[in-house]
Nucleic acid binder design. Structure first.
Lengths: 285, 285
DNA sequence: ATGAATTACGGACCCCGTAACGATA
DNA sequence: TATCGTTACGGGGTCCGTAATTCAT
């Protein structure tokens, strides 16, 4: 049977057409390539080349063999990759989160539960997180709804397990002189049409906002520090969440107003597939 | 990368569980197996085994790797087989035929048209032949109908090309004293209910006979010489075809009676896929 | 103490590169 | 004559088997 390298030479010959080029490409001698081609022929047991005394080219068999070998090389590489990925995944817990602000203490609690594993946390939209969870790219996801009851068909237990781990509430953050700044509560619709300043890394919130305030134009800003500067020095209304406010020192001249729409007052659920529950129970305890 | 042999050793270890057994199975020394396992581990770059000083077993990675390698070995074998088959097919013309009697001169004509190719002819039922033709297991098939017009969708040219190459007619072969022996023509239905002697290797004819003579019982005989003996020494009616009669010397005390049902008076069509027509034109000329 | 895997070591063989050769354009 | 493929040859490295070692049952 051909070695991996010999298969590479063969595939390369199909691509380049001359043994010399292949030898140069791999910085080895031509005789080695000649020998590899001979070995290919004897491995398959059928003629693969049309030869004259000083030229060599693939025949029909050879063209098929080259295609097949190219595929086998690919399959080989992918096979190795799969094993490596499996190993990597076994040493890693991947967490996908819809919450922009890191939920306090969660990562450290997980990392204490699995001291030998690396914790990888990445943000994403709920739909992507759900997909990632079912495709085993995430062991845990944080969703702004209870997936275990959402997908549960009549009485039969859901494929997912979810546990509430915190709340987050979107607020209007208005200049004190804004016409609505002194209200206790507002609906998103009350601000529809007003231009808003938006921190672009706002995740799943933005979809809701666009839907409920279709007439508002939004000024995006994706640099966190600049965003804060803008808030302090402009009179444009903007959004904040209670969680993000907690870590920030107060901004004078702005006041937070509660929004009553239920969609923007979410409970986060730490979610996993039920078949992983046993291994992850320490996280939910 | 692992060699084919090293992959075999690894797969075998997954099966047998000890290096010693693998070494015995392949009649080589244990150290060779040890080294192959080390090389596997270094190729994948991840731990594959749980080891103590004198025991070794696959871990989770190893079990996956073994499964993957088993698959890759299979893919490798199949790849080589495909190339070999392709070569073999390129040196062979495979003919499938629904005609039980070899059509005179056809094989020799084909073999003269392709002197460098081997001709393989095998009998089959029309449905199998059609499938074999579309799946390239046959380059030519002989069918008792015109496939090119049968499958031709409204105006658009068929995928197949067919040319009539001969006829065959099923006949009743009756003892001269049979009550219907003196008729010029009969229908299958006229004999329905009578027990018939049947040469079992009768191919597609038998389906028609069973359908048109559902009340007849048939006595099968698959030994050609015995069949002839039976005909000569019994008064059971039976079938023959005009083509098969031609090669036989007459049997006294039997007379052939024409059957008028169109289904048992067939024209044979030599059929190929249209994309092969150019290479096969000599056969049809 | 038997049987397992690993390590050590020596030799054979394989495989590669250099060089020479042959053929073709 | 320059280029390409094949053949010849020699040396180094690799790979295998034997034997010794270590550990566990």
């Amino acid at each position: 049977m051909l070695t991996y390298e010999e298969m590479q030479y063969f595939a390369a010959f199909a691509q380049y057409g001359t043994l010399t080029e292949v030898a140069e490409k791999y910085t080895i001698s031509q005789p080695t390539i000649t020998r590899a081609m001979k070995k290919a022929e004897e491995t398959f047991g059928v003629p693969l080349f049309n030869r004259t005394r000083n030229s060599i080219a693939l025949n029909d068999n050879g063209r098929l063999a080259a295609e097949e070998i190219r595929l086998l090389l690919k399959q080989t590489d992918e096979m190795v990759d799969r094993v490596r990925s499996y190993d990597r995944a076994s040493r890693t817990i991947s967490i996908g989160t819809a919450a922009v602000i890191e939920l306090p203490g969660l990562i450290s609690r997980i990392s204490r539960a699995f001291p030998q594993k690396a914790i990888v946390s990445e943000p994403g939209l709920p739909a992507d997180l759900e997909r990632g969870l079912t495709e085993d790219r995430y062991q845990l996801v944080i969703l702004p709804y209870d997936l275990s009851s959402k997908k549960g068909k009549k009485g039969q237990t859901s494929e997912f397990y979810a546990k509430a781990i915190g709340e987050e509430h979107l607020l209007f953050y208005l200049p004190v002189h804004h016409r609505l700044a002194r209200r206790k509560k507002l609906k998103l619709a009350d601000m529809n049409g007003e231009n808003m300043l938006l921190f672009s890394d706002i995740g799943f919130w933005s979809e809701i906002v666009h839907r409920k305030m279709p007439d508002s134009r939004v000024l995006m800003q994706n640099e966190r520090y600049t965003f804060r500067e803008l808030i302090e020095n402009s009179v444009l209304p903007c959004f904040v969440t209670d969680l993000s406010l907690k870590g920030m020192k107060d901004i004078t001249g702005r006041t937070a107003v509660q929004i009553t729409d239920p969609e923007v007052n979410v409970t986060y659920y730490l979610t996993c597939r039920r078949n992983m529950l046993y291994q992850l129970q320490a996280v939910f305890a």
